[in-house]
Write a protein that binds this DNA or RNA. Structure first.
Lengths: 301, 301
DNA sequence: CTGTTAGCGCCTTCAT
DNA sequence: ATGAAGGCGCTAACAG
């Protein structure tokens, strides 16, 4: 030991990993199609949870991204090179091709903020459908009848979008309200599309906007204000996530709080449990949400 | 090859790394003391640049964090285990202990948004001092004479804080203005400290606030608005970074745009150059900034 | 308790 | 062209 210190010796992790057959490393996999998921503000909080918990448990974190990887095979292949003991799939697309490959090879993995029908696949998520439904019920209780739903292009390939939209639609159905398809907007150019929504005759114009996530909601609020509409007097705005910017915007954004950091922490715990074979794969963990009411919400005029 | 495909064979990266003596992996090192750097909104954009460029160049990314690692030695040791060919130190503290260790072991590294006196250490950064100085000159030109400077506790250990503060002070000196030390605030409890700043008699009260970064500036703007002050009529607010929230806030935040993504990309390029011994260590790269004027700025009343 | 050795999976060299 | 073998740095099993 003294000699090791004197010679400034540090063991080589490659050689250790080779013989020990595990690496104490957790892989983080981003399967974004168009817009990098890790660019969203909620992502940092989930990452924070992952890193904190991983560090606590003496695990390193290897990041894989599928950025512009035209060759899907090469991409998948690198997941199977045994450099990490297991993988966390961060907000995976519904149609991602990593899941079948990982299953086939028996590599432990967990979906972070993703869903799967397969009972053998572990997921850590919130009840997007239920929480979005409760939020819309709250809007309806306040008197809103025309509620726009805004999401980005491509987001329909993710379970969080599918499920929140389903909750929005179900809430309408449960109250016997029709869901005007003209109020569901896939956003390309926010400024223009907001202008055109608000340019509708008063009888068709939305009195509230539900942004798929807080980023969308905050951008929408900004666009409305630049167009001269007041929030919440003229139109209410709500989102989902409760990112830090939701509390500091003016007015504050009404939203559904997700325990983002805890989602990340929980993923690491579940994954390490699977790696250690302490828990069986197929955990379906649903973390609680909370409605956070702030100034962006008021009854319609 | 056919057999390999048929048997679903994938090479083991550990064994490859062992014999090839390199791993095609770039390490990302977070040396935060108190507040995780990777929790800041500007970080995601730098990370985005790192990941995009790394993926482009067929590199994986390994994240090391120093979260609550009481045992500094173990922490440093894991940097030297040859799992990555080189390291990017993300917004390192001025007094971090990784730099000497890496130097001694001859492991290539680059400081991302950090500075070092040592001519042999590569850095990628903006001219924080110059840009902050130019911003403050602009405020003075508009007529502001009492400009508060707000930063978080602990941030004085980072070069970005030291340099922006130096620019703020130098701009005052260059215009023959005194720099009221009472207007430099280390923020513990923003709401209270903003209230107490604005509670000063009108002759001492700031007419503008410079937040060390956009996060601080936006939070300050929110606090001011909640206290009933109007931005920019009663007080102007400016920041640094130009994170996405700076454009969508109401009013828009005046700020210094940093090419955050490009900083990340550039770091990867410099680091890989050093690893390949194509460029010598000691690159001091300064990327350009740009003053972005938005609604949060007006002449004092 | 200390010392030796086989082999983790792969690549490179050298021999056929 | 194909094949055999040595060794990358380490650990674990076993021998002394």
């Amino acid at each position: 030991m003294q000699a090791a210190r004197r010679l400034n010796y540090h063991p080589n992790a490659m050689a250790q990993g080779l013989v020990r057959r595990h690496t104490n490393t957790v892989g983080l996999l981003f399967l974004h199609s168009h817009r990098p998921v890790h660019t969203s503000p909620s992502f940092v909080l989930m990452l924070d949870g992952v890193l904190e918990k991983a560090t606590q448990l003496r695990q390193d974190t290897l990041m894989y991204t599928s950025y512009s990887w035209s060759d899907g095979r090469r991409h998948i292949s690198s997941l199977l090179d045994r450099r990490c003991d297991g993988l966390i799939l961060v907000v995976p697309r519904l149609d991602n091709e990593a899941v079948p490959a990982l299953r086939e090879h028996g590599i432990p993995f967990v979906l972070l903020a993703g869903q799967s029908e397969d009972p053998a696949i572990s997921t850590v998520d919130t009840d997007n459908r239920g929480a979005a439904g409760a939020l819309v019920h709250h809007l309806i209780d306040l008197g809103h009848r025309r509620i726009a739903f805004l999401h980005g292009r491509g987001e329909e390939n993710y379970s969080y979008c599918r499920d929140r939209l389903a909750g929005y639609q179900r809430a309408h159905a449960e109250r016997g309200l029709a869901c005007d398809p003209g109020l569901r907007v896939m956003v390309d150019s926010l400024e223009e599309q907001v202008a055109s929504l608000m340019g509708l005759p008063a009888s068709q114009r939305p009195t509230a906007v539900f942004g798929l996530d807080d980023g969308m909601a905050l951008r929408t609020m900004g666009a409305l204000q630049r167009l001269g509409w007041r929030v919440p007097e003229d139109v209410s705005v709500v989102g989902y996530d409760d990112i830090p910017g939701a509390a500091t915007s003016w007015p504050g954004l009404t939203t559904v709080r997700q325990p983002l950091k805890q989602i990340g922490e929980c993923c690491v715990e579940v994954l390490l449990g699977q790696i250690a074979k302490e828990v069986a794969p197929g955990q379906k963990i649903i973390l609680p949400t909370e409605l956070v009411v702030r100034g962006s919400l008021a009854p319609p005029r």
